[in-house]
């Protein structure tokens, strides 16, 4: 099994997404980056660090756990909650950039939009993902995409990140049927 994205690919994709976020929002002063745990949170902090490097000013960054808003809670075992960290200035009137590792059905992002409503009312919400693998079940679209990976539904996309898995790579498992 070969890597769909190597560590260098991931690093380049994140750098490009950072520039795109800055371009779209004319700088970093209006944005608040919120990563969705577990891996989206690591990516969110990485993006914030890259943007700080480019702009030279601190970036508002945090995490948003969406577990309690999932629409499949009834169907599976309860999950331990992850940490939500909202920057002290809040999200009222901000441009929130949600960050996740893989965009698939779109249900996680729907849950995240609900979870945001419980925190406050942002001016607008944008979505950045490392991998868009298709097969959307809801009308949701990413604003910033690291890599579009066409997959079949029977395959699974595994994202490994240094902070959590000891290495950076994206793998596609299973046969393309």
């Amino acid at each position: 099994m070969s890597a769909a994205l190597t560590d260098a690919d991931i690093s380049r994709a994140l750098t490009r997404i950072s520039h795109e976020i800055l371009e779209r929002n004319s700088g970093s002063t209006s944005i608040t980056i919120l990563g969705i745990p577990t891996r989206g949170a690591h990516l969110g902090y990485r993006l914030a660090k890259i943007i700080e490097g480019i702009e030279g000013v601190p970036v508002q960054v945090g995490t948003l756990d969406i577990t309690l808003h999932r629409d499949d809670l009834r169907l599976r075992a309860p999950r331990a909650l992850m940490e939500t960290v909202i920057p002290s200035i809040g999200i009222e009137g901000r441009t929130v950039v949600l960050v996740d590792d893989v965009l698939f059905s779109g249900r996680t992002i729907r849950s995240a939009l609900d979870a945001l409503g419980e925190v406050g009312r942002p001016e607008r919400v944008q979505l950045a993902v490392l991998v868009d693998r298709g097969h959307r079940e809801l009308p949701i679209k990413a604003d910033f995409v690291g890599k579009n990976l066409p997959t079949s539904k029977s395959q699974s996309v595994k994202v490994h990140l240094l902070e959590h898995d000891g290495r950076d790579e994206v793998l596609i498992e299973g046969e393309n049927s």
Binding site: T38, L68, L73, R74, L75, R76, A77, P78, R79, A80
Partner: peptide, 14 residues
Amino acid sequence: LYLFIAGSQELVNG
């Protein structure tokens, strides 16, 4: 209440 009645089986992490 969340951990005991939200889901259908045992607790999983992650």
